[in-house]
């Protein structure tokens, strides 16, 4: 296993420890958030270190190589790539629909007086919708230019 993985694990653990110390020794409105970060960073950091030492041991070397090779095959498998693209496109379409429906729901709730400051949500969602559309068109044009010239 790469040494850089261990370095990253240690870095993540250190960030977790820093969050822990700040959460213990200070009292701010961000305490809850800091405890959350502590758990997340420490959990990921320690788990990564354990994983590193497990796979770095010589007796697991051969098996680790096999797993890496299999992972490489799965990631670069052409059918998987097509399926991922199709799934991504479908998810994009559903996200688009979900955002439009959310705008309608927030608009309706606001007008019915069941939600205050509803326009913040509506504007945010409209912004998100525009962002998604622009990103999609830009990515499409980028790839078409790259492939078709």
């Amino acid at each position: 296993m790469k040494k850089s993985s261990l370095c990253l694990s240690i870095a993540i653990t250190v960030v977790g420890i820093i969050c822990l110390l700040i959460a213990i020794f200070t009292e701010t409105v961000f305490d809850g958030l800091l405890w959350g970060f502590t758990g997340a960073f420490l959990g990921i950091g320690i788990a990564s270190m354990v994983k590193f030492f497990y796979w770095a041991s010589p007796k697991n070397g051969e098996r680790y190589k096999e797993i890496l090779e299999q992972q490489d095959i799965e990631v670069n498998d052409e059918l998987n790539i097509i399926i991922r693209d199709k799934a991504g496109h479908l998810a994009y379409q559903f996200a688009y629909i979900a955002i439009v429906v959310s705008i309608m729901i927030f608009g309706f709730l606001g007008k019915a007086g069941m939600l205050t400051n509803h326009m913040i949500f509506v504007y945010y969602l409209i912004g998100l919708l525009v962002f998604l559309l622009i990103t999609y068109v830009a990515a499409f044009n980028h790839f078409r230019k790259k492939i078709a010239g």
Binding site: I73, E74, N76, D77, E78, L79, N80
Partner: peptide, 14 residues
């Protein structure tokens, strides 16, 4: 066979 041509078994099956 899948391993030899570096694709997933599902791809071979498909």
């Amino acid at each position: 066979f899948a391993k030899a041509i570096r694709v997933s078994r599902q791809t071979v099956s498909a």
